[in-house]
Design a protein around this nucleic acid. Structure first.
Lengths: 335, 335
DNA sequence: TTGTAAGCGTTATCAG
DNA sequence: CTGATAACGCTTACAA
């Protein structure tokens, strides 16, 4: 293994000089800087991150905590992860992947062992246990999601309340009076995951404002669950002409079911989805949707974290305004 | 921050003793061991991983490298990641997430900076550049996937050739004589990704053995691509009664398209899929499929890596035998 | 502009 | 069975 000392010897300078060339923390003459650069290059030197972490008490790692259940928001999580990793690398950081089953203990572990400098949390509950742990350990953190009380916390998220509202607005404008909201699995609401509750509230507010008759049905990500939810909706409220869906997994079955039961989209029933664009574009007809900008959430989370670590600032909630893309799945209410 | 020395002072022993209690690398009297334990507990001591890495030259981190393109095998990758992280934690390791866009440079970086002790590669090409880098850097590695020449490498994978063969066997047994294989995106074959080529060969061999008339169509993960591929197949080979699908993304559109064009599954056309079980169970009818045991691949990869790091053994290719689950999407060839 | 040297918190060797 | 103590490779005052 080649070390700083090796490079220094090769370049004929002191090892601190090499360190300074690499960190840029003090000015070095162009000449020696070049000599050091060359030595680094020819020796293929890579600083030992452990030694660096020990000396500087910064690991240049950030931890991303994702939910363990592999059946939830999978494409969204994957995109977030990719956004985070890509952006973090751009800032010279590596990303440690933790699963939620370690819970608060995982945060405590990586923070107090100096494995990571900061953490990014996802799948945020309205009252999330881990928030206390963050405060307690003092580790820098950014939440992708917003808890009930975000005081002092840095959060990034889509403005889900506005997103829900947008869906209803669109359907109401098209004349729909009876709308059903097929949401995430029951358990998501039971755990009081922020985005799910906010979306629901946005939809409810919109329905109230427009005088739209609304029903909410949580739904597991299985064919049966989708079939059951849809059947019940159509049976109990046969005049339903508008559907809002926030559950990527059941979009394909839902489309099939509608076709099977002889309901044309958008002629008989209009559908608005809350999902990443690729998902909305994979059906026929394509779905009118409010996009979930997952990769961007990851990117912004990293940027916010960097800002926070640099300036010590804290307590910003950044909500991305939703935007609705009209595709082929929505149309005027049938006569 | 509390250090080894703090614990030692608190317990009234030498710091080396604390270290030995923690590592168990030499015997310590029950009494002092207990005293140290208590001190660790009350002080909430967590060893500094950087210092530990520096002194022991082991980071207790392994790097998982996943493809960047977020549109490919997403559920599979996510499951692999979860399997890897969970198992790694069980062995006391943390997992660093790298994307493939860093390529060989990423491997070189984490290996030579001692950021990770070992790497797990996915998305393996038949002739994969990164294999040379592994040899060159001497970093411990396990591939999830098998290159053309796996000599000296540790690999884990589903036996995709056998899996492909199994699909054809099943259809042939049901009497199907004209079969189409709708595969991954063109680019996957162009990059000579191992699993795709092996599956294709398995299917081709099976078709030859059974005298089945086969055509292979790569297909992007979009509705249009699926529609185009299916239309072309049915136009050029109207007698096609069997479909093998290896492309999770297009399963939902495919099912819709068949229904739209008036083909009943399995009465008119039988479908066998190569995908994770949850995907196969999300359609109606459910799909007869050969499962891709993604989480298990991740778990086995970690186990293999641990074995390798412990014993220095190398060069094992572990192929998981495929198993076909008959569900509702396959039936006898129509008269 | 550059060099010297004191840590950073572990591990592991060498004595005892 | 336990204690000192020299590394480990880097950062960062402090000098020059």
């Amino acid at each position: 293994m080649t070390t700083l000392a090796d490079v220094a010897r090769h370049a004929g300078v002191a090892s601190s000089t090499v360190s300074y060339v690499l960190s840029g923390k003090r000015s070095v003459s162009e000449e020696t800087r070049e000599r050091v650069r060359r030595a680094v290059e020819t020796l293929g030197y890579h600083p030992h991150v452990g030694a660096r972490a020990l000396a500087s008490s910064r690991s240049n790692v950030l931890a991303l905590i994702v939910p363990l259940r592999s059946d939830m928001y999978v494409p969204v999580m994957m995109e977030i992860a990719i956004g985070v990793v890509t952006r973090a690398r751009g800032h010279g950081y590596d990303v440690l992947l933790l699963t939620n089953d370690e819970g608060s203990e995982g945060i405590r572990r990586v923070a107090s062992s100096a494995r990571a400098d900061a953490v990014i949390l996802t799948d945020i509950g309205m009252e999330d246990d881990r928030i206390a742990t963050i405060a307690e350990t003092g580790v820098d953190a950014v939440l992708i999601g917003v808890p009930a009380d975000p005081a002092g916390l840095d959060c990034v998220d889509l403005d889900f309340a506005a997103a829900g509202r947008l869906c209803v607005d669109h359907l109401a404008q098209l004349g729909h009076r009876t709308v059903a909201f097929i949401g995430e699995a029951e358990g998501v609401y039971r755990r009081h995951i922020g985005f799910a509750e906010r979306t629901l509230r946005g939809i409810q507010d919109g329905a109230a404002a427009h005088g739209v008759d609304l029903v909410h049905r949580p739904c597991d990500a299985s064919y049966e669950a989708a079939a059951g939810a849809l059947a019940r909706i159509l049976e109990e409220r046969p005049h339903t002409t508008g559907l809002i869906v926030q559950n990527e997994g059941i979009i394909p079955p839902l489309m099939s079911l509608l076709r099977t039961t002889g309901r044309a989209v958008p002629e008989d029933v209009s559908i608005v989805a809350l999902c990443p664009d690729p998902v909305a574009e994979q059906t026929a007809p394509r779905l009118t949707s409010v996009t979930i900008p997952a990769a961007e959430l990851g990117i912004r989370a990293v940027d916010l974290l960097m800002r926070r670590m640099a300036s010590g600032a804290a307590g910003e909630v950044r909500l991305i305004p939703p935007s609705l893309t009209i595709r082929g799945s929505t149309g005027p209410r049938p006569a």
